[in-house]
Design a protein around this nucleic acid. Structure first.
Length: 511
RNA sequence: CGGGGCGUAGCUCAGCCUGGCAGAGCGCUUGGUUUGGGACCAAGAGGCCGAAGGUUCAAAUCCUUUCGCCCCGACCA
C-alpha cells in the first residue's frame, strides 16, 4: 500500500502560504484559471458557495427594504468623465469597447470594424450609469429614497491577479441608494456596513472589524468609505466589504435632484456598497487547513456527505437502502432555517480516495456507512473541524436528531477559532521601534507569516507614509466605536511624529 | 511598463548545453487481484515539442523573428 502524504495539501500553510492557497482552490475544485488573461472559471462547487452567499445576503437586503434591478454592462465614456475623482480612480483599469463588428482580414482571421462614435466602458462599477437613471427617476421628495441593489459582473483591468481575491472580471453585488437628507444617507451607509459585518460573522464565521477608511484609501468620489476588515491565517488583512457615503458628489455631477416639500430644488445624497466573490477568497483563507477547504456549514453546498461502503452486490443493496433512508431523514431536518443539504456519493470509487476528496472540498460532516453500521443501526462520522482521521460511531437516530446542533457547533467552533487567531495577532503598539519590529519578517525563509493587526495612534504625515510603504503596511481602517479593545476613540500621540491623535487605527499588511 | 522565468501528452515536467525513432510520473480506458480507507499488477489510448522563417543530409534541440503565459515590482475590491 502506498504511503499517504501527511497532509492533503502541499505545500502547507507554513511552508508557502500563497501557493497553499492556490492548491486548496485546485483540490477543492472551486475554480481554475481560464484561457482569458486574469479571468477565472468558477466551477460548480465554488459557484454553489457563491449562490449560498447570494441567497443569504439577498434576503438581508430585502429585509432592509431594498429591491433588485439590473443596469447595463456598458457605460458611455462620457458618463465616467462626470465625477472628477471617480474617473481618476478607475481610468487606469478600464476595458473599453471601441468597435461593434468583425470582418475577415486578408490573412484569414478576423479584425474589428465599425468603430463606435463614443467608446463604451465595460463597467468597473455602476455609480455613473445608475446615477444617470436615478436623475430621471427622481423628481420629488416623494420619490425618495431609492433603495436598489444589483447582482452583476464588473471588469477592472488589474495588472496582477489572484483567484477570487483579484481577477479582471468578478461577480459582486452593488447597492446604490439615493436619499433626501444627509442623515438618512449616512444611516444607510452604516446600516449596510452592519449587514456585511453580520453576514461575515454569522454566515462566513469570519470575524471582522468595522471601520472607516482614511482619505487615501477612500473610494474614488466618496465622502466617506467604510469597510469590514478580516484577518487571514497569514495575519494579512482582507478588505471584505465596503460601504460608501457619496455625499452629493455624484448627485451634483449627474444632476440627481428633487423638489423638497418646501418647494426647493435639492440634490440627493447617495450611497453605494458592495461585496464580491472575493468573499470566497476570505472564506478559504480564514478556515482552511493543510487538508484543504474547510467550509462553515451555513455556506457549505453540502452539509453532510454519505459514503456507502460495500464489497459485493448483496452488501450494496442493503447499504444503499440504508443510506437512502438516512438521506431522506436528514433532508427532513432543518438547519439555519433551511433543509439540511445531503449528498449521497455512491460513485464507484475507492473509499479512501472518496473520503479524502470530500475532506479537500470542505464538507462539514462525512458519514461512512458500511455493513457493520447497517447492522448496528449507526453511522460512522467525521467532522471537518477536527482531524481527518478522527472518526466515531454514533447511533443513527441520535445523529439525525442532533444534526442541526452538530452543524451549529461546527459553525460556532470555526468562528471561535478564527476569532482566537485574530485576537492573538492583534495588539496595541505605542512606539515606532516596536511597530517596525512587528512588521519586519524575522524568518527570511518564511516571510509570509508574521505581523498581524497593530492598533496605533498616528497622524497624517509624508514621512509616515513612506515608512509604511517601505514596510508594505497600510492603514486598514479607523475602527468604529466598540469594535476592538484598545481601538476606541481616545486621544493620544502619533507613534511616529508625536503629534496629537484622535484615536487608534488598524495597521496591517493587506491583500 | 521595468526585472526574471517558462511554452514538449489532460496535468506536472525530463530531454535542449553536445542536432540522429518524442519520453517519465500522475490522470484516463480495459482486464485482473484487492477492498472500513488517498491500492496493486497487466495491457492500452493519448503529441504539428507555442507559431513563422532560417542553418543542416537531419531540428523539440542551433540562429532570427513573433505570440502567449507565469513569477517579482509599480497599480488595486
Amino acid at each position: 500500500m502506498a504511503k499517504a502524504p501527511k497532509n492533503a495539501i502541499s505545500p502547507t500553510r507554513e511552508e508557502d502560504y500563497p501557493e497553499w492557497y492556490q492548491q486548496v482552490i485546485k483540490a477543492a475544485d472551486l475554480a481554475e484559471i481560464s484561457p482569458v488573461r486574469g479571468c477565472m472559471v468558477i466551477k460548480p462547487w465554488g459557484y454553489a458557495i457563491w449562490e449560498n452567499i447570494q441567497r443569504a445576503l439577498d434576503r438581508m437586503f430585502k429585509d432592509t427594504g431594498h429591491q433588485n434591478a439590473y443596469f447595463p454592462l456598458f457605460i458611455p465614456l462620457s458618463y465616467l468623465e462626470k465625477e472628477a475623482q471617480h474617473v481618476e480612480g478607475f481610468a487606469k483599469e478600464c476595458a473599453v469597447v471601441t468597435h461593434h463588428r468583425l470582418e475577415a482580414n486578408p490573412e484569414g482571421g478576423l479584425r474589428p470594424t465599425g468603430q463606435l462614435e463614443e467608446p463604451l466602458v465595460v463597467r468597473p462599477t455602476s455609480e455613473t450609469i445608475i446615477g444617470a437613471m436615478y436623475a430621471k427617476w427622481v423628481q420629488s421628495y416623494r420619490d425618495l429614497p431609492i433603495l436598489i441593489n444589483q447582482w452583476a459582473n464588473v471588469v477592472r483591468w488589474e495588472l496582477r491577479t489572484r483567484m477570487f481575491l483579484r481577477t479582471t472580471e468578478f461577480l459582486w453585488q452593488e447597492g446604490h441608494t439615493a436619499h433626501a437628507t444627509r442623515e438618512e444617507a449616512v444611516e444607510e451607509t452604516l446600516k449596510m456596513l452592519d449587514v456585511y459585518a453580520t453576514f461575515a460573522q454569522d454566515y462566513m464565521a469570519m470575524p471582522v472589524i468595522k471601520g472607516e477608511k482614511t482619505a487615501g484609501e477612500r473610494f474614488p468620489g466618496a465622502v466617506n468609505t467604510y469597510s469590514i476588515e478580516a484577518m487571514m491565517q497569514d495575519r494579512k488583512a482582507l478588505q471584505s466589504g465596503t460601504s460608501h457615503f457619496l455625499g452629493q458628489n455624484f448627485s451634483k455631477a449627474q444632476e440627481i435632484k428633487y423638489l423638497s416639500a418646501e418647494g426647493r430644488e435639492e440634490f440627493c445624497w447617495t450611497t453605494s456598497w458592495g461585496v464580491s466573490t472575493r468573499l470566497i477568497g476570505g472564506l478559504i483563507m480564514t478556515h482552511s487547513d493543510d487538508d484543504g477547504l474547510v467550509l462553515p456549514p451555513r455556506l457549505a453546498p453540502a452539509h453532510v456527505v454519505i459514503m456507502p461502503i460495500f464489497r459485493n452486490d448483496e452488501e450494496r443493496a442493503t447499504v444503499l437502502d440504508f443510506c437512502q433512508r438516512l438521506e431522506a431523514e436528514l433532508k427532513a431536518q432543518s438547519f439555519s432555517g433551511e433543509p439540511v443539504r445531503v449528498l449521497l456519493d455512491a460513485r464507484e470509487m475507492r473509499g479512501g480516495e472518496k473520503s479524502w476528496l470530500h475532506v479537500k472540498r470542505g464538507v462539514p460532516v462525512r458519514l461512512e456507512i458500511g455493513p457493520r453500521d447497517v447492522a448496528s443501526d449507526a453511522v460512522f462520522m467525521a467532522r471537518r473541524d477536527r482531524a481527518a482521521n478522527e472518526k466515531s460511531g454514533v447511533p443513527r437516530g441520535e445523529f439525525v436528531a442532533n444534526i442541526s446542533k452538530l452543524l451549529t457547533e461546527i459553525q460556532d467552533n470555526l468562528f471561535a477559532r478564527a476569532r482566537t487567531l485574530r485576537d492573538e495577532n492583534m495588539r496595541t503598539i505605542d512606539n515606532r521601534e516596536e511597530f517596525i519590529r512587528y512588521f519586519t519578517p524575522k524568518n527570511e525563509e518564511k516571510p509570509e507569516l508574521h505581523g498581524g493587526f497593530a492598533l496605533c495612534h498616528y497622524g497624517e504625515d509624508p514621512e509616515v507614509a513612506q515608512l509604511l510603504a517601505d514596510l508594505k503596511v497600510t492603514i486598514r481602517c479607523i475602527p468604529l466605536e466598540g469594535q476592538v479593545a484598545g481601538g476606541d476613540r481616545a486621544a493620544g500621540q502619533c507613534i511616529f511624529t508625536g503629534k496629537p491623535s484622535q484615536g487608534r487605527a488598524v495597521f496591517a499588511k493587506a491583500y
